[in-house]
């Protein structure tokens, strides 16, 4: 298959934003990316998943650790309910799919700095994390069905 789609929408995740968010997350025992628009894996002892810093002051935590974000909030900490459609894309034609759907040059991205991108794919706002030769995507679930249908249609044509 030219592009494979895996749906991870049911993986637990939680979000938070605000000027106090970074400090609050550190106190919960989570590693916090220093650089805006980067992510860290939450592997090993922390049970798998990731934490992404979206822009300056918003964070997405995915995986078992996300339950920590149910803790009481403090000043400048604003919980963000995450109900994303979450996908993993991979395959021989993944880059061709991206060339038809997104104006960001994914091939030119330096994966070693673990970037997280906020951009638009087929007109839908997404969070995108390239991981090796896979691409993690999150989008608003009200767009989710149309989004996945559209990508599948294009992937089928590329096959």
């Amino acid at each position: 298959m030219s592009v494979q789609f895996q749906d991870l929408s049911t993986t637990p995740r939680a979000g938070v934003k605000g000027p106090g968010a970074a400090e609050w997350l550190k106190q919960l025992g989570l590693p916090v990316p220093d650089v805006p628009n980067t992510w860290l894996p939450l592997g090993g002892a922390l049970g798998g998943g990731l934490i992404a810093r979206l822009g300056n002051t918003e964070f997405l935590v995915e995986g078992p650790e996300s339950v920590k974000l149910a803790a009481p909030i403090s000043h400048g900490v604003y919980p963000v309910l995450r109900q994303d459609t979450a996908l993993v894309l991979k395959g021989a034609r993944l880059n061709d799919l991206l060339l038809e759907t997104c104006s960001v040059n994914f091939l030119a991205i330096n994966r070693t700095t673990r970037p997280a991108l906020l951009t638009s794919i087929v007109g839908v706002g997404v969070t995108a994390i390239p991981d090796g030769d896979e691409l993690r995507l999150w989008c608003d679930s009200t767009y989710g069905e149309w989004f996945l249908d559209t990508l599948r249609t294009i992937a089928a044509e590329l096959a």
Binding site: G55, N56, S103, V104, L117, L118, T119
Partner: peptide, 17 residues
């Protein structure tokens, strides 16, 4: 298409703005 550089997200196509 014009490129606009977001101070946080970097250079992007103007349609993202």
């Amino acid at each position: 298409m014009k490129i606009m550089t977001c101070p946080i997200n970097g250079p992007r196509a103007i349609t993202e703005f």
